[in-house]
C-alpha cells in the first residue's frame, strides 16, 4: 500500500515540477520527486542507492535553488489554484496505470552478487578513477576562484 502512495506522490510532484510557472516552486516539486524516489529505493531494499539519492539530491537542489533565484523572471501570470488542482487530478489519474497494470517480465536470472562485493571488488577501478576526476574538477574550480580573487583572468 505504501508503495502505491509513494508512486502517486512521485507522479504528482513530477507533474507539478513541469507545470508550475514559478521556477522556485518547480524546484521544490523536484525536491519532492527526489525524496519519493529515494523512499521507493529504500522500501525496495536498495538502501545504499537511497542514501546516495538523498545525498546527491540535496546537493543538486541547493545549486538549483540558487540558479532558480538567479534565472527566474517574474512570470507573466501566476499559476492559478484551479490549474494546479487540474494538474494534480490528471497526475493522480496517470498514477493509476502503474498501480493496476503490469508488464510481464522474464524470470530473474541474476548472479546474486551483493552490493558491497559488486562495488568494491568488481567496480573498484571505476570508483578510484571517478574520485580522481571529481578531485581534479574541485581543484580546478578552486584555482579559478583563487585567480579571480587575485584579479587574474
Amino acid at each position: 500500500m505504501i508503495l502505491e502512495v509513494l508512486s502517486v506522490g512521485l507522479i504528482i510532484s513530477a507533474c507539478l515540477a513541469i507545470f508550475l510557472d514559478e521556477a522556485v516552486y518547480s524546484v521544490v516539486a523536484l525536491a519532492g520527486t527526489f525524496m519519493f524516489t529515494a523512499l521507493l529505493f529504500l522500501l525496495n531494499g536498495a538502501v545504499y542507492v537511497a542514501i546516495f539519492q538523498f545525498a546527491v539530491g540535496i546537493g543538486t537542489l541547493a545549486v538549483l535553488f540558487l540558479s532558480g533565484e538567479m534565472l527566474s523572471e517574474k512570470p507573466k501570470q501566476k499559476t492559478s489554484l484551479k490549474s494546479a488542482l487540474t494538474v494534480i487530478v490528471v497526475s493522480a489519474v496517470l498514477s493509476l496505470f502503474p498501480i493496476f497494470l503490469s508488464v510481464p517480465l522474464s524470470a530473474a536470472s541474476g548472479s546474486g552478487v551483493p552490493f558491497g562485493e559488486a562495488l568494491w571488488d568488481l567496480r573498484a577501478p571505476d570508483i578510484v578513477l571517478q574520485g580522481l576526476v571529481i578531485m581534479t574538477v574541485a581543484i580546478g574550480i578552486a584555482i579559478v576562484l583563487y585567480e579571480r580573487k587575485n584579479g587574474g583572468d
Binding site: 525496495n44 542507492v49 546516495f52 530473474a108 536470472s109 551483493p114 552490493f115 562495488l119 567496480r123
Partner: peptide
Amino acid sequence: SSMGLGLGEAFMV
C-alpha cells in the same frame, strides 16, 4: 534490486 543484482545498484551509484 528486485532481481538481487548488486552490480546494477553499484552501476547506478
